[in-house]
Structures are given as C-alpha cells and as structure tokens.
C-alpha cells in the first residue's frame, strides 16, 4: 500500500499505483456537533454520524484505518477506527491541540499546541508526551513529508516552521503571507502550498531550497488547500467568497471558480473528486475533478471544518 498517512486532514492525495479497489472513505469532522461522519464513495448520502466528543477541529488519517482528531477546547485527542466504525480511545493533552499529523508507521502523533506556540510529539498508542519543539505563534496546519520533515503554519508569525521530526529541532523558518492557516504538499513533495487567510494568497514554497518562490493571488480568505494527484492543480477554499478556487500549479493562473456552500474550509481530493467542508452551510460539496463542477452537496452535522480520506474502511 502506498497510502501515505503523513498528511493532515486539510489535504489528502492518494498514492499513485496504490492497491486497487480498496474501499476509500472521506470523513468529515463537525466541530459544532462533535461528530465524525463517513461519506460513501461517489456519494449522495452519508452514513450515521458518530459522536467523537466536544468540538473536534482537525482530523488526520493514520495507517490501518485509524483517524486522529484534535479537540482544542476539551484538551483532548480522540482515535477513531474506520474499520470498526467506532471511537477506540481518547487521551488528554496538555495544551490546546489543533493541527495534527501522523508518522508513516502510525506510532507517533505530531500535534500543534495553538496557545502554547509549540508542537508536541505523542505516542499514538498511549498519548504519552515524548517531547516538544517551539514554533511560531498559533500553529495551525501541520504536514509531515516522507523524509520526516514536519511543516507547521505559524498563523500569527507569518511563517512556516520546518522541523526535523526525529530530533524535534526546528531547522528553518520560511516567511509567507499574512495568517498562514492550511498547508498542502504536492505529490513529489518538492512544493508546499500555503493558504494565507488575511492576505488572500497562496505562497508556493520550494521545499529543497526552503524558501517562498511565488505568491498566487486568490482573493477573500483562503482557509483550505489541496493539490491534484498529478500535481497540476491547486484547489483553494475562499471562505469569504463561498467558492473553491482552482489555479494552475505552475503559474497560478485561474482555471475555475466553483461556487460551493457558505464559509468553505477544509478540502481533500479522493479518486476523481474533491470534497469541500462548508462550515456555515453544514454540508460537503463534491466537485468532479475532470469538469471542475459541483456534482453533489451532502448534508452533514453542524460546523464541518476538516476532512480526511481513510483507506481500508468498511464503507
């Protein structure tokens, strides 16, 4: 299986050449309702929501069909087993857990502490704190690459921190736009795209040189970003506009502006569709990647923000 579990719920790309016909499920965490719900592949309806605890903010997939959710207001992480369709454990966290990434072997969690300006490394099994590393102010999204480099969007520091996840050392900081919130690596992992909420832009980072090489104008408030499986298109949710903006990865030229629900936030791509969590409208928009048009809108519980793709689930 080439399924990569290293990405946060803001972005999931399915590995090319992966196991065929393995069931893929898109999951949506609703912060207001405190639920996680699975959308069937090519969906028109969703399954029954599962209560996961108060105010889940972000969800990230691990291996073996496990999903990890952060609950900043409850100082808690919950673990959901997609194959069993149920919550398997929760553990307390000392801080305000928000962004989350899972190591490739599923053994470790990297969790941003929103108010503590640090990233914690926890045992995925027990929740035990293994160490911390200081980053910028208000760490939002976290993304882990295959080399074990962790990228952190430091929302109130206008930068991305780059962390050696094994040694828990910050090795670089890269200036980006104002209020970076969401991150997405392209499939080759040589580009990192950063959604900047207040400047209305996407920063393009060269991950080899560790610097910003371009800034794409999006407008409004970009709150989520994903990259197409071929690396050619960048999908950005514009929360103010109620749209999914699609731009060319090479030059930032606009390919489409797709109206979705109100206050769209998280976006993921699974197989031939993109899924957008419409926070205000309590729905998920399904966008066909070939036509860049909305093909379905699925009602979900109150306040959906974050999505994750799990492989190996029952549904």
């Amino acid at each position: 299986m080439t399924w990569r579990c290293a990405l946060v719920g803001l972005l999931v790309v399915l590995g090319a050449g992966g196991v065929q016909a393995s069931p893929v499920s898109v999951y949506v965490a609703s912060q207001g309702a405190g639920t996680l719900v699975a959308l069937a592949p090519g969906p028109s309806v969703s399954a029954s929501p599962v209560v996961v605890g108060r105010s889940p903010a972000q969800v990230a997939p691990g291996p073996n069909g496990l999903l990890y959710l952060t609950h900043p207001d409850a100082r808690q992480i919950s673990v959901f087993d997609a194959r069993r369709g149920s919550l398997v454990r929760t553990f307390p966290v000392d801080g305000q857990p928000f962004g989350i990434a899972v190591s490739a072997d599923g053994a470790r969690l990297f969790v941003g502490d929103w108010a503590g300006d640090r990233v914690m490394r926890l045992s995925a099994e027990t929740g035990a704190l293994e160490g911390t590393v200081s980053v910028g102010k208000e760490p939002a999204a976290l993304v882990l690459d295959r080399r074990g480099r962790l990228y952190v969007a430091d929302r109130e520091s206008r930068q991305v921190s780059v962390v050696n996840s094994l040694r828990l050392e910050r090795i670089a900081t890269i200036p980006v736009g104002e209020a970076p919130f969401a991150l997405a690596l392209d499939p080759t992992e040589d580009r990192l795209y950063v959604a900047n909420v207040r400047s209305g832009t996407v920063s393009v980072i060269d991950t080899v040189a560790s610097r910003t090489i371009a800034t794409f104008a999006i407008g409004g408030m970009p709150y989520g970003v994903a990259v197409s499986p071929d690396g050619g298109l960048i999908l950005v949710t514009n929360q103010q506009g109620g749209t999914l903006v699609v731009v060319d990865a090479t030059d930032g030229m606009r390919r489409a502006t797709v109206p979705v629900g109100r206050y769209p936030e998280g976006v993921v791509i699974a197989e031939a569709s993109a899924y957008v969590a419409n926070w205000f409208s309590d729905s998920v928009s399904v966008i066909d990647m070939a036509t860049l048009r909305e093909t379905a809108r699925i009602a979900v519980p109150d306040g959906p923000r974050s999505l994750a793709v799990a492989r190996g689930g029952d549904r």
């Binding site: 207001g32 900043p72 207001d73 305000q96 929103w114 929302r155 109130e156 306040g303 923000r305």
Partner: peptide, 12 residues
C-alpha cells in the same frame, strides 16, 4: 488583538 481561537461560532 489578533488571537483567533480554535472554535468558530455562527451568527445568522
């Protein structure tokens, strides 16, 4: 001044 919390709320 700029601190955003992690839990947004709706007004409608």
């Amino acid at each position: 001044a700029l601190a955003h919390g992690p839990t947004p709320q709706k007004v409608d």
